[in-house]
Amino acid sequence: MASQEEILEGLANIVNEIAGTDVEDVQLDKSFTEDLDIDSLSMVEVVVAAEEQFDVKIPDDDVKGLRTVGDAVDYILKAQG
């Protein structure tokens, strides 16, 4: 089970690979769409990569609620059980 820091680091690397965003810019309070320029298509790629990396399932209906990096980190923490 990954810690909050490990999840944040993993998401930062995923966002960097998909959107070219600097890893340092991916912080808990950042909005995927407004701050990190992640569009809906890129968000799907982020979710798929996060599911694979952290061995969790994120249903499409739940993706809409992941507005910030912190939302995603909290969701993954809970999904890990």
Rank of each mutant, 00 (worst) to 15 (best):
V46L: 08
V69K: 06
E45C: 00
K30T: 10
A50C: 06
Y75C: 08
L66K: 07
V26E: 04
V73M: 02
L36S: 11
K57S: 13
A72Y: 09
S42T: 14
V46I: 14
L36W: 02
V48F: 13
V47M: 14
K30F: 04
K57I: 11
D74W: 12
V56F: 08
P59F: 09
D71W: 04
F32G: 03
I58G: 12
V56S: 03
L36R: 11
K64R: 13
V63P: 01
K64T: 12
D35R: 06
D37I: 13
A49L: 07
T68Q: 07
S40C: 02
V47Q: 11
K57A: 14
Y75D: 00
A72E: 03
D37M: 14
Q53C: 07
A50W: 01
E52W: 07
V47C: 02
V56H: 02
K64M: 05
Q53D: 05
G70V: 02
L77I: 14
E51M: 11
S31C: 11
E45A: 06
A50I: 01
D60W: 00
E45N: 05
D71F: 00
F54E: 07
D55S: 15
Q27K: 15
D60P: 03
Y75Q: 13
F32V: 06
G65I: 09
E45Q: 09
D29A: 13
V46Q: 05
I76S: 08
K78D: 12
I76H: 11
V48R: 01
L41E: 06
D29V: 06
V69Y: 07
V44K: 02
Q27I: 15
V46F: 05
S42A: 14
M43E: 10
V63D: 06
V47F: 11
S42N: 13
I38C: 13
K57V: 12
D62L: 13
D35W: 00
D74Y: 10
K78T: 03
V63T: 14
E51I: 08
G70C: 05
R67M: 10
T68I: 02
L41N: 02
Q27V: 15
V26R: 05
V56A: 01
A49V: 12
K64Y: 11
V73W: 09
V56M: 01
V47Y: 12
D62C: 09
I76D: 10
D74E: 15
Q53E: 13
L77K: 12
K64N: 11
V73C: 06
D60M: 04
I58L: 08
S40R: 04
G65M: 07
S31V: 04
P59G: 04
D25E: 14
D74N: 15
D55H: 15
K30L: 05
D61R: 14
D55P: 00
Y75M: 05
D60C: 02
P59K: 12
T33I: 05
V44D: 05
V47W: 09
V48S: 08
Q53H: 07
K64P: 01
D74C: 07
F54L: 08
V26P: 09
V26G: 07
G65N: 14
K30D: 04
L36A: 11
L66T: 05
D37E: 15
G70M: 08
E52V: 00
V63E: 04
A49N: 12
L28D: 00
D61S: 09
F54C: 08
S40W: 12
D39E: 00
K57E: 14
K78H: 11
I38Q: 07
K57P: 01
Y75I: 11
D74P: 03
A79D: 04
